[in-house]
């Protein structure tokens, strides 16, 4: 009797908790990859120019910001593409900074789930990368550049060649989305 009542109560708790969770998360749907935007894709209405902050590698082994004005679309996934395209193009001609992705990487895909996790797929490095410093600057250069310019993104997971990787050079955990981490930005 007592046990039966307890079981029914527990079932009700579980059912409501699941409902609450489903309501808040929009349901357990896998994020859908979207086709990559081609460089030539014409934009019907030009997006307004805005200043974005990009992070590049300094000679001190830390990230340094560079400001740049670019047309910035309103859609978050389009904005991520613009930020990454600028980031992968590297620092400005007069800059003494270096790109955070130390190989000629291309952006393959961007998608974002209901929790605000962005997944960005970069082409894989042609040869293994080494050093935690290389790994940290690549990861947080990409993650922080995206989140600083797209505040609706809570965390970013970087995929390489369409695959999730445990780590890139044997140190940093890349198997989960990374949140903003300003510890590798010079002066912070």
């Amino acid at each position: 009797m007592h046990r039966r009542a307890a079981l029914i109560a527990l079932a009700a708790v579980a059912a409501i908790a699941v409902l609450v969770w489903l309501a808040s998360s929009g349901g357990p749907r896998a994020p859908q990859p979207q086709a990559a935007l081609t460089e030539q894709a014409p934009t019907p209405t030009p997006a307004p120019e805005q200043r974005i902050m990009l992070l590049f590698a300094g000679g001190d082994g830390l990230l340094h910001p560079e400001l740049r004005s670019v047309p910035l679309p309103a859609e978050v996934d389009e904005r991520i593409r613009v930020v990454l395209r600028e980031l992968l193009a590297g620092p400005g001609a007069a800059s003494r900074l270096a790109p955070v992705v130390p190989y000629a990487a291309s952006l393959e895909a961007v998608f974002i789930d209901e929790q605000g996790n962005a997944f960005v797929d970069l082409s894989a490095p042609p040869e293994p990368l080494a050093g935690s410093s290389t790994e940290l600057l690549l990861a947080y250069g990409v993650v922080d550049s995206i989140i600083l310019n797209c505040p609706e993104v809570k965390a970013v997971q970087i995929l390489f060649g369409g695959r999730e990787v445990a780590t890139l050079a044997g140190h940093l955990d890349l198997s989960r989305p990374l949140a903003l981490n300003k510890r590798f930005i010079a002066g912070s």
């Binding site: 000679g59 001190d60 929790q115 605000g116 809570k154 990374l178 949140a179």
Partner: peptide
Amino acid sequence: ASTAPSVTGAETYYMSLDGPSDAA
């Protein structure tokens, strides 16, 4: 190892817990 050959020095790391948001 760093892509910038000028970088030198020693550093010690401990775990950071700021991975994904708690809710996620």
